[in-house]
Design a protein around this nucleic acid. Structure first.
Length: 119
DNA sequence: GGCTTGACCAATG
DNA sequence: CCATTGGCCAAGC
C-alpha cells in the first residue's frame, strides 16, 4: 500500500477517533475546550458523545493526548464510574497549567476556552 | 445482528 | 438551578 504522507501522525486513515486525537493535541497549555467544540472541529458536529467515548479510550492508550484539557459544556470536569476519584487529578493538571477553578470545580470558559477568542 | 451503555449537548418545563 | 427528553454514533455482549 502506498503511503504518500510523510507525517507519521497522519498515516492512519481519517477515522472518527484519529480526528479527535489531532484536535485535542492542538490544545495549547493553559487552555481548555469542550467535547462539543472538539466534535465540531473534528467535523463531528452534534456527535459530542463520540468525543467523550473515544477520548476516554485513547486517554488510557495514548498518554500523549492532553485529555485533561477537554471538559463538558458546563465548564466543569466530567467524571465517570471508572474515573471516579481521579477527578482531582484532572483538576490538578489544569491548575498546574495556570487554570483557576471555582469553589464548585468550574472554570471560566470565557478566559480559558479554546480556540480563542471564545464565543 | 439487535439491545444496552456511555467522560455529551441543546432545548424545554 | 435541576429534571426530563431527543439525538447522534461506537463498542460490548
Amino acid at each position: 500500500m502506498a503511503c504518500a504522507t510523510s507525517d507519521p501522525e497522519f498515516t492512519m486513515n481519517d477515522t472518527t477517533y484519529d480526528r479527535i486525537y489531532t484536535i485535542v493535541r492542538q490544545i495549547p497549555i493553559g487552555h481548555v475546550t469542550t467535547y462539543g467544540r472538539v466534535a465540531t472541529l473534528a467535523g463531528l458536529d452534534g456527535k459530542a458523545r463520540l468525543v467523550g467515548y473515544a477520548l476516554f479510550k485513547v486517554a488510557t492508550d495514548s498518554p500523549e493526548i492532553p485529555w485533561q484539557r477537554v471538559i463538558n459544556a458546563k465548564g466543569e470536569i466530567s467524571h465517570s464510574s471508572l474515573r471516579e476519584g481521579s477527578d482531582y487529578l484532572q483538576r490538578a493538571l489544569l491548575e498546574a497549567e495556570g487554570i483557576q477553578f471555582d469553589d464548585r470545580g468550574k472554570l471560566d470558559l470565557k478566559r480559558y476556552g479554546w480556540p480563542t477568542p471564545w464565543a
